[in-house]
Design a protein around this nucleic acid. Sequence first.
DNA 1: GAGCTCTGTTAGAGCGCTCTACTGATGAGA
DNA 2: TCTCATCAGTAGAGCGCTCTAACAGAGCTC
Lengths: 331, 331
Amino acid sequence: MGRPTMEDVARRAGVSRALVSLVMRGSPKVSERRRAAVLRAAQELGYSPHAMARSLASRTSTVLGVMVSDLHNPFFAEVVDGLDEVARNQGFDLIISTGSRSPARERRALGSLLSFRPAGVALLGTVVSAADIATAAQQQPVVLVARSSRLSTVDTVNDDGEAGSEVAVDHLVSLGHKRIAHLDGGSGSQAALRRRGYDRAMRRHGLDPVVVRSEYTDVAGARAVRELLADSEDDLPTALVAANDYNAVGALAALAEAGLRVPEDVSLVGYDNTSLAGLRHLSLTTVDQPRSEMGRLAGEALLQRVRGERAEPVRHLLHPSLVVRGTTAPR
Amino acid sequence: MGRPTMEDVARRAGVSRALVSLVMRGSPKVSERRRAAVLRAAQELGYSPHAMARSLASRTSTVLGVMVSDLHNPFFAEVVDGLDEVARNQGFDLIISTGSRSPARERRALGSLLSFRPAGVALLGTVVSAADIATAAQQQPVVLVARSSRLSTVDTVNDDGEAGSEVAVDHLVSLGHKRIAHLDGGSGSQAALRRRGYDRAMRRHGLDPVVVRSEYTDVAGARAVRELLADSEDDLPTALVAANDYNAVGALAALAEAGLRVPEDVSLVGYDNTSLAGLRHLSLTTVDQPRSEMGRLAGEALLQRVRGERAEPVRHLLHPSLVVRGTTAPR
DNA sequence: GAGCTCTGTTAGAGCGCTCTACTGATGAGA
DNA sequence: TCTCATCAGTAGAGCGCTCTAACAGAGCTC
């Protein structure tokens, strides 16, 4: 009983275990006759190799560990998709962990991910400490998406969040807006950068920055708008730059709830250009990040390191561009 | 060089390898003195157990394999979330594969998932053949979500798709609609059931069923509506029952593009009650499926089997309920 | 003080594979 | 005819761990 092993196949095919191993790995140095015999025996027994045993013996791994900050945010689902594509094409499997945007929980999740000794690790928008990242990077290649790092041992795939926010503000200013608030990403990854870009652009235009503390979720976006409405008397902002699309969606709901029309009363810009933004009924003006492309780039960077083709860090810095849709209008 | 092993820790702590193993597994039969010594040594070396080696030696696994039909559909992201919660709480990790809604690709993906000898497998909305499922179920527990099966060896978590569609149709009929078309889920999982429910309800009301072949994606939903508009002259349906929310979103876009207002000109009902439907600006009337709850139920069913607590199949059949929002209105 | 249980510890086999080093044919080249 | 490659195949160690059985030593009982 139990599943058949290589031993069973070998016995049935009348060959050694080593020969079965060679056949399973598609080695060319096996005669056609034996190969056929082995394959037939395997077929009859319903044998398929045990990936973990293989990995242990060969001291290699075909697993990539992926830690996602939040699976509900379509941004990450789309990045994972690109990563998955590259990985699968090169014979790697993904083991996925979600950290729920808490450094402590992400730390635990990362630990459990590493206990599988993956060939490489991709951290998508995570907030684990830089120290934890450094430690992890000593064990196997690490690539960060939507999170920057100065570590020379990790690769990164990011857009220029500062420039992205600036473009958003410039767009609003060009429409005549002056009171432009930012719903920020709090302690989320890349949030500081986007905040800085917003700040800089505002000052450049001689405007007063107003930052409302928020988070990368729809719930937080709605809450931030409610706070903003409660706090500001009649000096209500005429435009909002949200932390990301997911946050903007919440903001949109809260604005509607307060009887404010978008874009007639308030203009709104998101960030990421997720599938959400493209929904015709949201039609969110947003800053584009090429999500699956970023996933593919991350996968490729990781696999290059895994194969030992490169040791110097790679820093993909994508240039953000504004996608103007229906949530922004002249003042 | 290379990562430290149990051997290294044992040597450093001046104990046997077996003792280190006991400490790592939290055995009570270790003296405090030794336990402290081992933990310190492990700490100093930065040791953490090798999950795969452990799994191989103990002939047990702490991974659950998950195959998701489509990560872009928020329905699955939400189910995975519930599953992840249960799994993590009980010390299991998820290894995730996406099949891209093609039986052949899903078959391959399933094979690679099984090669890790997971403790159990969850198939979310997949379209692999029943035979493949049966084979897989011989190796380890299998739970199906959003897909039914008569196999006594697999557990299932579903809603009553037939009843769900009926409720949707009843709602539309009660609003005075007579020409109600169904954008179906094609060969997607549970699609036949939903189609049958639609059909039955229509006949019960003495109405003519009109089924437009579609799929569980937004792109397909949009295409189906365009076809529908092209084919029907002036006998245009006044209401649509979409395969699921994701499909409905596409339909919504295509309707808008054709200058048709929802719900003034056409009413629309989705299915799943994903986060998409709840978006204030979509405000999609839809049939509710409790997604994370379904994920949790699936996780629990799977783990019960994994622990050998149960051998008889469990069939969770959730009762669908209609969530009326803004996309449906009287004729 | 011999036998007993109980507690803490260890040796060593073995999980299912890979990989190195080796063997025994076969055929080419001198 | 005798090397000497070359090719197809195998034996056996070992990957990092768990688990069984066995074993000291302490503390009992009689």
